[in-house]
Amino acid sequence: MDSLVVLVLCLSCLLLLSLWRQSSGRGKLPPGPTPLPVIGNILQIGIKDISKSLTNLSKVYGPVFTLYFGLKPIVVLHGYEAVKEALIDLGEEFSGRGIFPLAERANRGFGIVFSNGKKWKEIRRFSLMTLRNFGMGKRSIEDRVQEEARCLVEELRKTKASPCDPTFILGCAPCNVICSIIFHKRFDYKDQQFLNLMEKLNENIKILSSPWIQICNNFSPIIDYFPGTHNKLLKNVAFMKSYILEKVKEHQESMDMNNPQDFIDCFLMKMEKEKHNQPSEFTIESLENTAVDLFGAGTETTSTTLRYALLLLLKHPEVTAKVQEEIERVIGRNRSPCMQDRSHMPYTDAVVHEVQRYIDLLPTSLPHAVTCDIKFRNYLIPKGTTILISLTSVLHDNKEFPNPEMFDPHHFLDEGGNFKKSKYFMPFSAGKRICVGEALAGMELFLFLTSILQNFNLKSLVDPKNLDTTPVVNGFASVPPFYQLCFIPV
Rank of each mutant, 00 (worst) to 15 (best):
D2G: 10
V6F: 15
V6T: 13
L9E: 00
C10K: 01
C10Q: 02
L11H: 01
L11W: 13
L14K: 02
L14G: 06
L15C: 11
L16F: 12
L17G: 10
L19R: 15
Q22N: 14
Q22K: 13
Q22L: 11
S23W: 08
G25C: 15
G27Y: 11
G27L: 12
K28L: 13
K28N: 14
K28M: 15
G32L: 00
P35V: 07
L36E: 02
P37H: 02
P37N: 04
I39K: 01
G40L: 00
N41M: 01
K48G: 10
I50Q: 11
S51N: 15
S53H: 13
L54R: 01
L57F: 14
V60P: 05
Y61I: 01
G62P: 01
P63D: 15
L67S: 03
L67R: 00
Y68C: 06
Y68H: 09
F69P: 02
G70P: 06
V76H: 02
L77V: 13
G79T: 03
A82E: 04
A82R: 02
I88D: 09
D89T: 11
R97T: 09
F100M: 15
F100K: 05
P101T: 10
L102Q: 08
A106D: 09
N107V: 05
R108G: 13
F110V: 13
F110L: 12
F110N: 14
G111D: 06
G111I: 02
I112F: 12
N116S: 14
K118L: 08
K119Q: 09
K121N: 15
K121G: 10
K121V: 10
I123E: 04
R124E: 05
R124L: 03
F126Y: 11
F126L: 08
S127F: 13
M129V: 13
M129A: 12
R132W: 07
F134H: 15
G135E: 12
G137R: 13
K138I: 08
K138L: 09
R139G: 09
S140D: 09
R144G: 05
V145Q: 02
V145L: 05
A149I: 02
E154D: 13
E155A: 15
T159E: 05
K160C: 12
S162W: 06
P163T: 07
P166M: 02
P166G: 01
G171A: 10
A173S: 04
P174Q: 15
P174G: 15
C175R: 03
N176G: 02
I178T: 02
I178R: 07
I182R: 01
I182A: 02
H184V: 04
H184R: 14
R186C: 02
F187P: 01
K190V: 08
Q193C: 10
F194Q: 04
L197R: 01
M198G: 03
M198E: 02
E199F: 10
N202R: 13
N204L: 07
K206D: 09
K206L: 08
I207F: 13
S209A: 09
S210Y: 02
W212L: 07
I213S: 12
I213Q: 05
I215M: 15
I215C: 14
I215P: 03
C216K: 06
C216G: 11
C216Y: 12
N217W: 08
N217V: 06
N217L: 11
N218F: 14
N218M: 13
F219S: 04
I222S: 06
I223C: 08
Y225A: 11
F226R: 02
F226K: 03
P227I: 10
P227C: 08
H230S: 08
H230L: 08
L234G: 08
K235G: 07
N236K: 03
V237P: 02
F239W: 15
S242M: 07
S242R: 14
Y243A: 07
M255R: 14
P260T: 13
Q261M: 13
Q261P: 08
F263C: 14
D265R: 03
F267L: 03
L268F: 06
L268R: 05
K273V: 10
K275Q: 15
S280G: 12
S280E: 07
F282T: 03
S286I: 08
S286F: 03
A291T: 09
A291P: 03
V292S: 08
F295Q: 01
G296H: 15
T299G: 06
T299V: 13
T299D: 01
T302S: 13
T302D: 00
T305Y: 06
L306V: 04
L306R: 01
L306F: 03
R307M: 04
L310E: 00
L310N: 01
L313T: 03
L314T: 09
H316N: 11
V319S: 04
V319I: 15
T320V: 11
V323K: 01
G332T: 05
R335I: 03
S336T: 15
P337S: 05
P337H: 00
D341N: 00
D341T: 02
D341H: 07
R342E: 02
S343C: 12
S343K: 11
M345D: 00
T348G: 01
E354M: 01
E354N: 01
L361G: 12
P363A: 05
T364I: 14
S365A: 14
L366T: 06
P367D: 02
H368K: 07
V370G: 04
V370S: 12
T371V: 08
T371N: 15
K375G: 06
R377M: 06
L380S: 14
P382V: 04
G384T: 03
L388F: 11
L391I: 03
V394L: 10
L395R: 08
N398V: 12
K399G: 15
F401L: 05
P402E: 09
N403R: 12
F407R: 00
D408R: 04
H411E: 00
D414Q: 05
G416R: 15
F419D: 02
S422W: 04
I434E: 11
A439G: 15
L440E: 01
L440N: 02
G442D: 15
M443E: 02
L445G: 03
L445S: 05
L445K: 02
L449R: 01
L453C: 06
Q454V: 03
N455Y: 04
N455V: 07
K459S: 07
V462A: 09
V462M: 10
D463T: 10
P464L: 13
G475W: 12
F476D: 05
S478P: 09
F482L: 10
Q484A: 04
C486R: 14
C486V: 07
V490S: 11
